[in-house]
Computed example of a mutant assay.
Amino acid sequence: MAYSWAKIPIYDHVPSDRLTITLNGGTTHRQSTWRDIAGRPLEDQLPELLQEVDLRGLAAARERAEREEQSRLKRRRWEAATAQAHADCAEAFRVRVLEQQENAWRRAERLSAHLAAASDRIDAMPEGAVRTAAEAWLSWAKAHVRALDPLSGPLRLPEVPEPRHDDLKPFLNGWSPYGPHGR
């Protein structure tokens, strides 16, 4: 039986190996778990634990800064690729216009040759309603051919329309036209 003056402690002060602190996440530098063990209580291990928290925080900050720098570099590369794609798309548009003009010019040349032969034929016709109708048709046809011929008007660099996202895709070399995230 215990004496009335003796007080029984509520807690044991002997390490039980049940108290544990575990750090999750981040890059492990030394260890992730600290235990209250005999000969080395948890409170004596707190400086190591705090140093591990600090090291992980510094590593996380470095990784975050590195990711942000990589993201900035990727955005710059995407912006450069997009600017080049705009230039390449404009060049391709000008080439298409030039080829269309060349096709229209060749067509106008063929039609002009046809109309020259038709004019000779009309000149050989006798005066009358048939010749008048043929001359009216020839007059209309010559005006039509003049409108077809790109060389009949002023020559100038074509105005390039603002490209759509899909227009840029072939010139982006794998980049997304919507942003740097697509690669």
Rank of each mutant, 00 (worst) to 15 (best):
T33P: 00
W5R: 09
V145G: 07
Q31H: 05
E162W: 01
E127T: 14
W137T: 07
W137S: 09
A133C: 06
A92Y: 00
E109C: 12
Q70T: 05
E66F: 03
E43S: 14
L46S: 03
A65R: 14
K169R: 15
R40M: 11
R75N: 14
M1S: 09
K142C: 06
S32N: 12
H29L: 03
L49H: 02
E43C: 10
I8A: 05
H13C: 14
R67A: 15
D120I: 08
G57Q: 13
A141G: 06
T33F: 00
P41T: 08
Q31K: 10
N103E: 15
L157S: 11
Y3T: 11
R183Y: 04
Y11L: 15
E91K: 06
Q100G: 10
C89Q: 09
L148W: 05
R62D: 15
L111S: 12
F171W: 01
V95E: 07
I8M: 05
R156A: 13
C89I: 03
L168D: 03
M125W: 00
R40L: 15
L50E: 11
V130L: 13
H114D: 14
E43W: 07
L55D: 13
F93G: 02
A117H: 02
A133P: 08
Q101K: 09
S139K: 12
G128V: 14
W34R: 02
S71G: 12
G25M: 03
A147I: 09
D166W: 00
N173F: 01
L49W: 02
I37V: 14
N173I: 00
L55H: 05
L58W: 04
A118L: 11
P177N: 08
H165L: 13
A85D: 02
C89L: 03
D149T: 04
V97A: 07
A92E: 06
W34P: 01
F171E: 01
C89D: 03
E109I: 10
E68D: 15
R30A: 12
Q70L: 15
V145F: 00
M1K: 02
L73E: 10
A113D: 14
I37E: 04
L172R: 02
N173R: 07
H29Y: 11
M125V: 09
A65Q: 15
E127A: 15
E159H: 06
Q84E: 14
